[in-house]
């Protein structure tokens, strides 16, 4: 009986020891990680528009059925062109809003006349699927005022972004939660 009791005591002692070791280890690791972590607690996924090559993977690789990536428009960079190469097919029939002239596969760009000869282009985000066709057209020929960004309201904040894996130019990065967007006109090219 006494031997049994000793056995139990020993087991208890070993168990307690292990627990203490475990708890101390976990606490130490936590301290280490907490000390290591960067200033910003939280990271979000975002597209660096200057690295983006508008390949179209954003539309096809997001875990969401309708991608969390949408096109944004830096109005201050826009040329307000009549012939917008982000809006019109390369050889558009005429420069009107007719569907046969539009580049966007979902018709998500609104073109409104302002005054001769300026037209304003705005993105209808619920329709935009983030395919980047307009971005490609605008960047190749125009001022590059159209660019892709991840809509943080819709992004699932996956631990590993599926589009980032597919991105050919490593344009999708973790950004601090305090700076969820990388706008083109503010962060933009040389002044």
């Amino acid at each position: 009986m006494a031997e049994n009791q000793r056995k139990i005591d020993r087991r208890k002692f070993v168990g307690d020891g292990l627990r203490i070791v475990g708890a101390v280890g976990i606490a130490g690791a936590t301290g280490f990680w907490a000390g290591r972590r960067a200033e910003d607690d939280d990271n979000l996924w975002q597209i660096d528009p200057h690295q983006c090559v508008a390949c179209g993977n954003c539309a096809t690789h997001c875990v969401l059925d309708k991608s969390a990536v949408v096109c944004k428009h830096a109005y201050a960079m826009c040329g307000y062109c009549n012939l917008c190469t982000g809006y019109f097919e390369p050889d558009a029939n005429e420069l009107t809003t007719g569907a046969e002239n539009q580049l966007c596969p979902t018709g998500a760009i609104r073109r409104t006349f302002i005054e001769d000869p300026y037209y304003e282009y705005a993105i209808d985000e619920p329709l935009c699927i983030g395919c980047g066709k307009c971005v490609k057209g605008c960047t190749a020929f125009g001022n590059g005022s159209l660019y892709l960004q991840i809509d943080q309201d819709r992004c699932m904040h996956c631990n590993e972004c599926a589009i980032a894996i597919a991105c050919p130019s490593e344009a999708i990065k973790r950004v601090p939660a305090g700076k969820p967007y990388l706008p083109k006109d503010q962060n933009g090219g040389p002044a």
Binding site: N93, G98, A99, E100, Q102, G107
Partner: peptide
């Protein structure tokens, strides 16, 4: 054109 628009 109309056809294109409708189909589109």
């Amino acid at each position: 054109k109309r056809q294109v628009r409708d189909l589109d």
